[in-house]
Amino acid sequence: MIVYLLCSFLFVLGLYCLVAKKNIIKKIIGIITMEYSVNLFLVLVGYRARGIAPILSKGADKAEFIAKSVDPLPQALVLTAIVIGLGTIALMVAICIRLYERYGTFDMTEIRRLRG
């Protein structure tokens, strides 16, 4: 239980950073933190106590492997999510660099004020 709570505390930290900070890079950092915590939570749900990685070695017993292996399905889905997160973060940083060129600041309120 305390592991789940620490994981959701990480999510709350990211959400706080996304909502309360004015700097755009800080907002991106918040999104990254939230993404990490969600990935971590999915892997934590699939963990088996004293489990082994879901890789079948050569001379291993099949029944023992099934009884001891951790859940491979969340791992496969999280593997997809990690790579997609990299692409979206690259897009966000690119937009930030363009905004900095246009307005000369990372401040959210300044960017809003200069509009129109």
Binding site: A53, P54, V70, L79
Partner: peptide, 9 residues
Amino acid sequence: LGAPDLAIT
């Protein structure tokens, strides 16, 4: 947590 593929990625 037993996820070496995830650790590498």
